[in-house]
Amino acid sequence: MVTGGMGFIGSNFIRYWLERHPEDTVLNLDLLTYAGREENLADVVRDPRYALSVGDIADPMVFRLLEEEKIDTVVHFAAESHVDQSILDPQRFVRTNVLGTQNLLEAARRTGVKKFVHISTDEVYGTLGSTGAFTEETPLAPNSPYSASKAGSDLLVRAYCETYGFPAVITRCSNNYGPYQFPEKLIPKIITRALRGEDIPVYGDGLYVRDWLHVEDHCSGIERVILQGRQGEVYNIGGGNERTNLSMVRLILEELGRPLSLIRHVEDRPGHDRRYAIDALKIRRELGWQPLRSLEEGLKTTVQWYVEHQDWWEPLLAGGGQQE
């Protein structure tokens, strides 16, 4: 079972898994919120190995679903994930990310799930100075309601491993990009606004640094963790592509042939982490994983996808998908 499989990373993962594991069936549990869209998996809905169950991970029905479907593996993506929205409405993030994860963990424990992979984020580590990188041993120091709720869910997973011997693994990834990403996020926001000739808002001085990971490279890392990851462990998955937000805007505008004059600096958001960087040495050494795409290659194909799929993102903008 994949939770949140209609979202950006979840839908890419389901497609990735079905292509590479023809013997498996996948049940997608998704609440179909604003960022979870059935169009994201329009190409697999008729695959007999795939099924959708519309539901909430915080609902008690999760136990019955896991039991009836005889689920042996859970890959848990479902989460509220937009930092700006967490500042406006933190309670919604605690409900889904903390209470929902605990409900799912308990249902999985009681129904004998054999492997539970919890997908988390490097944001739980907080912020970095100009040097160093997050390792799996870095203390958790979240700075936004979103990252705090994800850190809470990580600690619940750890507690289930320690208390019950529950077969769970945690992954923490750097910033993802690629096709089917909702336009509220940085890269699709830049692309879609540039294609429409609109100003590109950049927080503060634009020198906030992120490590960028193509979503398919992330999926391949999760695949390695499912197949080989050790119970109770944490694995960082990073792309090794550090860039400032401002440099990302410039790269995309250059790729699209749009002027730099579209850039507009706006007031910074509260609690904005200055830099993230992932040390992915553990997953490289233990599981033999490494990203296959350079940022330049991945960004080029991502920009092209949005150029060719305006019918996917334009209705989202009409419905308020560009959240400042």
Rank of each mutant, 00 (worst) to 15 (best):
G204N: 15
D205P: 08
D205K: 10
G206I: 10
L207W: 06
L207T: 13
L207K: 14
L207G: 13
L207P: 05
Y208N: 13
V209A: 09
R210K: 15
R210S: 14
D211F: 12
W212G: 07
W212T: 04
L213R: 01
L213W: 12
L213S: 05
H214I: 10
H214K: 09
H214Q: 10
V215W: 05
V215Y: 02
E216G: 04
E216L: 15
E216I: 14
D217N: 03
D217C: 09
D217Q: 11
D217E: 13
H218W: 14
H218M: 13
C219T: 12
S220K: 00
S220H: 10
S220F: 03
S220D: 06
G221M: 01
G221T: 04
G221V: 08
I222S: 03
I222F: 07
I222L: 07
I222D: 03
I222C: 01
E223M: 07
E223F: 05
E223R: 10
R224Y: 02
R224S: 12
V225S: 01
V225P: 12
V225M: 05
V225R: 13
I226E: 02
I226V: 15
I226S: 09
I226K: 05
L227C: 08
Q228D: 12
Q228Y: 13
G229V: 07
G229I: 02
R230S: 10
Q231W: 01
G232N: 03
E233P: 04
E233K: 10
E233T: 09
V234I: 14
V234W: 04
V234L: 14
V234C: 06
V234E: 00
N236R: 00
N236T: 12
I237V: 06
G238S: 08
G239D: 03
G239L: 00
G239I: 07
G239A: 07
G239R: 07
G240M: 07
N241C: 11
N241V: 01
E242F: 01
E242K: 02
E242L: 08
E242D: 04
E242C: 03
R243L: 10
R243G: 00
R243W: 07
T244E: 05
T244V: 11
N245A: 14
L246A: 07
L246D: 03
L246E: 11
S247L: 00
S247Y: 00
M248V: 05
V249F: 02
R250P: 01
R250I: 02
R250A: 09
R250K: 12
L251E: 11
L251G: 00
L251K: 15
L251M: 14
L251Y: 09
L251Q: 11
L251I: 06
I252R: 03
L253A: 14
L253Q: 06
L253M: 10
L253D: 08
L253R: 13
E254K: 11
E254I: 07
